[in-house]
Nucleic acid binder design. Structure first.
Length: 898
DNA sequence: GCGGACTGCTTACCT
DNA sequence: ACAGGTAAGCAGTCCGCG
């Protein structure tokens, strides 16, 4: 490593060529001037010079012409991408148990056009728990190994082996390993390169850059963890380095395109690209706001004006427009889109071909499911924000619908522009405004909180050893798989085939409560209904990762081969776990958990740190949270390459054991346990001593930490599990699972629920509580009366909003209400797809639902809404000792008396 | 032919 | 393509009932 001490935090890319161009150019460019810009010479590929300044490893791929791994380096000072090609002669390969002698008899192997040579190699087989000798088959081309439907070495070997093994072999069956790993990943692992980290090119070679200041912090972290074993410390250090190294400013451009079809309610097909691209907007980190418009017959300019800083450029021909857009794609290191994989970039590429633009001028590489860039890195934010883990754990479910409008609204508070006319009727200015707003939202979705999303992608790339493009598109199980693969290669371990893990360790021993699930999960303690003051919530921080750490869980250690380990049983199961050797997963996940709990969570809240660093730590802890939350589940997911059901089952079983033990102990200490779920216990008014004793006992007996997570001024439980409400000291109301919180219920009901929430937030004492009850009854009564009198502002208030989980044709067993509504919409010409949010109201006449936009006031089924109001409030009212019917009944009496 | 008990499907949520 | 557990509403079915 090379010593460097650069302040990467304050690095801002230098002003770019475009800045100069902008200064000279008038607000409105002519097509001729754009043509001049197009003429600017482009150097491709942008090969890194013999010596290159510190740069970020942002992407990797394979160059099919040079037959070499290619690494894309982002140099933040110039804001440019440089390509570095492998100079070590690394080649694609896979492994097999067949000997060279046996392989030589398979013609289709040795005469394969991609075949290169064989080598013997010793590897550690984690399933056999011993060293094995395998043959490494090298190829000239990754496609010779796999990645094609047929004719690849990984298929040929098991196919042809029986033909040659006429009794003269000692291999029982032909096996191939590691043939499904993408070549550039293989390269990354073998060379122990770390995507997302800083490298420089020195005399043509790639070397990691070492920042002194950061290394000091890594040492500081190590000293905090010095009580751990040397093995654990090694992992902690490696993770800490990945998480401590700074991030650059990302020089980037968001783009959005509009296509105008003559008459169409459908989204134009990007594969056909039959209609012209009429508008493209570009919104960049160096403050360019450009709108490129296609001149068309009969389109007016429009009256309103765009802000002065927006550059509006008109093009006489579509080809020139596309070429101008392509200049942006050749220029910026990071290109952001919202659904660019499936629409914007795909459309541009196909449209360019249709218009006769030569392939060499098109900067887009169109794949089956993705569109990548020949120069920079394309981040499709739709894919990133669609990721469930990102949605839930990184952004706390703040956006519901993965649309540009909803995500933009929820995260940055910028609205999409509402259109009142169809695309073909818009004036130039209207179209420009609309299109620019979309790229503005797209851009800003990456810039809030000091570029949080970009940095999150970078951190995830580091953890998972993946290119930024891949990490932003794939799910958490891929991230976890890849860092485990990396570790196998680092330890020279054979990466097992999924079916071999399953054959040896595929059996589960518990029965799930839910039909169709594979094994038993967590425990939920029956709640004590009612209102309880001073409730302490204790929980195990990252329970499952802690269990994986403390119990040494992993696919190698569970049901290991040693007879002497068989008595080391997992509670509630017949499974045993290894006592001799530490499992890789236990180390990887355990160290990650400890780092999050003992360093990153604390630092993210440390007000003595500079704000920028604190934000960075918050990003790091958020990334760890996402990974840790999934680290148990992946072992129970058959899509995971190291799928091992007993590991998942054991984790859950130990979780049940832990919470049961602590529950018993709490009760023996005389603490009333009001409720608990998986890893938490709700204690009624415990003394400080009782809490301390429980903590001490848990640490001693269960070898796991437990904290007071929060203290509720009071909590309200109904008799339902996963349904409660708690008010914190500062008046914050936590609502869990109650219908009033769910996002699908009508605003008319939700508003009343929120009013109740506000009222409950004021309550400090049992006496005040009694007063609040009367107000709550009033709130409910008011809502009820307004329903009965049909007094609502608009129908939208009464709409239910339910996500259509499947394509319409897929609902064959039943037809739920939202599906009925969706079908009505479809019959009215709307395009309905899985994932759409269906808004409907309940009506009196068959089929008792109507899409909200088609319904009228007098067909609303008031009784259904009353029933819904009733059930929504019952969840809270019965705990308060109130009854919906009595609240309503009272009004009847009042009316009678009046 | 009708209604209640039941199961199953679907969605949204909790940890 | 992380897991299992819980609640709720509705659709559809079964069964008893002269």
């Amino acid at each position: 490593m090379v010593q460097k001490s650069l302040d990467f935090y304050s690095q801002v890319p230098k002003k770019m060529v475009n800045e100069e161009a902008k200064a000279e150019a008038p607000a409105k460019n002519t097509a001729e001037e754009n043509q001049k810009k197009e003429g600017r010479r482009r150097v491709f590929p942008p090969v890194a010079p013999e010596n290159l300044l510190p740069s970020y490893f942002v992407s990797a791929s394979y160059d099919g012409h040079l037959k070499k791994a290619l690494i894309k380096l982002y140099e933040p000072q110039s804001g440019k991408i440089y390509f570095w090609y492998d100079n070590t002669g690394h080649k694609p390969y896979c492994l097999t148990n067949l000997s060279q002698h046996e392989l030589e008899k398979i013609d289709r192997v040795v005469h394969h056009e991609g075949f290169d040579h064989f080598e013997l190699e010793e590897k550690f087989d984690p399933l056999l728990d011993k060293k094995v000798t395998v043959t490494k088959i090298f190829a000239n081309d990754p496609l010779a190994i796999g990645g094609k439907p047929e004719g690849t070495l990984r298929d040929i070997i098991p196919e042809d082996f029986p033909k040659i093994s006429g009794g003269i072999t000692n291999s029982e069956e032909a096996k191939v390993w590691e043939a499904r790993i993408k070549y550039y990943q293989c390269y990354i692992y073998d060379r122990q390169l770390l995507p997302g980290m800083i490298y420089e090119v020195k005399n043509g070679s790639l070397s990691a850059v070492n920042l002194e200041e950061t290394e000091q912090r890594v040492s500081q972290i190590k000293s905090i963890f010095k009580g751990d074993t040397a093995e654990e410390l090694e992992y902690t250090e490696a993770w800490a380095r990945l998480l401590e190294y700074p991030a650059p400013k990302f020089r980037r451009a968001a783009i959005d395109i509009e296509v105008t079809a003559p008459v169409s309610t459908r989204v134009p097909d990007p594969r056909e690209a039959a209609y012209p691209v009429t508008c493209v907007s570009v919104y960049t980190s160096d403050n360019q706001k450009r709108v490129l418009l296609l001149k068309r017959e009969g389109v007016r300019e429009g009256n309103e004006h765009l802000p002065a800083e927006v550059s509006v450029e008109y093009f006489e021909s579509e080809e020139k427009l596309l070429r101008a857009v392509f200049e942006v794609l050749w220029e910026y290191p990071f290109i952001l889109t919202f659904n660019g994989d499936d629409f914007d970039l795909r459309y541009l590429a196909h449209r360019a071909i249709n218009l006769g633009i030569s392939k060499g001028d098109i900067p887009i590489e169109v794949g089956k499911r993705v569109c990548l860039l020949r120069y920079g890195v394309h981040i499709d934010l739709y894919k990133f924000f669609f990721n469930r883990s990102i949605q839930i754990y990184a952004f706390n479910n703040r956006y519901r619908d993965v649309t540009l409008g909803d995500v933009g609204n929820a995260l940055i508070g910028v609205e999409k522009i509402q259109l009142e006319k169809s695309f073909s009727e818009l004036t130039y200015t209207e179209l420009a405004r609309y299109c620019l707003r979309d790229s503005e939202i797209t851009f800003k979705l990456t810039s809030f909180e000091d570029e949080l999303p970009m940095k999150l992608i970078l951190v995830l790339a580091r953890i998972s050893s993946m290119p930024m493009e891949d990490v932003s598109r794939q799910g958490v199980s891929r991230w976890i798989r890849n860092f485990m693969h990396r570790e196998h290669r680092k330890r020279n371990m054979l990466i097992p085939n999924a079916e071999d893990i399953l054959t040896k360790k595929g059996k589960v021993a518990t029965t799930a409560i839910i039909k169709g699930k594979k094994y038993k999960g967590a425990i939920v303690v029956e709640p004590v209904p009612g209102v309880h003051f001073n409730v302490a919530v204790m929980d195990f921080p990252s329970l499952y990762p802690s269990i994986i750490k403390v119990w040494n869980l992993g696919y190698q250690s569970i049901l290991c081969t040693h007879a002497e380990c068989q008595s080391n049983l997992i509670p509630d199961t017949p499974h045993w776990v290894c006592t001799k050797k530490r499992a890789m997963e236990s180390l990887l996940i355990g160290s990650l958990r400890d780092l999050r709990v003992r360093w990153y969570k604390l630092k993210a809240k440390d007000k003595t740190l500079p704000a920028e660093l604190r934000i960075w730590y918050n990003i790091a802890q958020g990334a760890l949270k996402v990974i840790l939350n999934a680290s148990y589940g992946v072992f129970g997911a058959d899509s995971f390459d190291l799928y091992c059901p007993p590991v998942a089952e054991a984790t859950a079983a130990i979780g049940r054991h832990s919470i049961t033990q602590i529950l018993k102990h709490a009760e023996s200490l005389g603490i009333q346990v009001l409720y608990g779920d998986t890893d938490s216990l709700f204690l009624k008014n415990p003394s400080r001593e009782q809490v301390e004793e429980l903590t001490r006992w848990t640490e001693h007996e269960l070898k796991m930490g437990i904290d007071v997570d929060k203290v509720y001024r009071y909590a309200v439980f109904s008799s339902r599990k996963k349904n409660y409400l708690g008010v914190l000291e500062d008046g914050t109301v936590d609502v869990k699972g109650l219908t009033g919180k769910k996002k699908h219920i009508p605003a008319f009901i939700k508003n009343a629920f929120n009013k109740m929430k506000e009222r409950l937030s004021q309550v400090k004492t049992p006496v005040e509580f009694e007063k609040a009850k009367k107000d709550i009854a009033d709130i409910v009564r008011e809502r009820y009366m307004r329903l009965k009198r049909r007094e609502w502002e608009n129908l939208g208030e009464l709409a239910f909003h339910i996500v259509l989980g499947e394509e319409l044709e897929h609902y064959t067993k039943t037809t739920p209400q939202h599906v009925k509504a969706a079908k009505i919409l479809k019959d009215n010409g709307a395009e309905i797809r899985a994932g759409d949010l269906i808004s409907f109201v309940k009506t009196t006449r068959e089929p008792h639902v109507k899409p909200v936009e088609l319904a009228t006031k007098n067909e609303v089924d008031v009784d259904k809404y009353t029933a819904y109001l009733h059930s929504t409030f019952d969840q809270v009212l019965d705990a308060l000792g109130l009854s919906f019917d009595e609240i309503i009944g009272l009004t009847k009496l009042e009316r009678f008396l009046a």
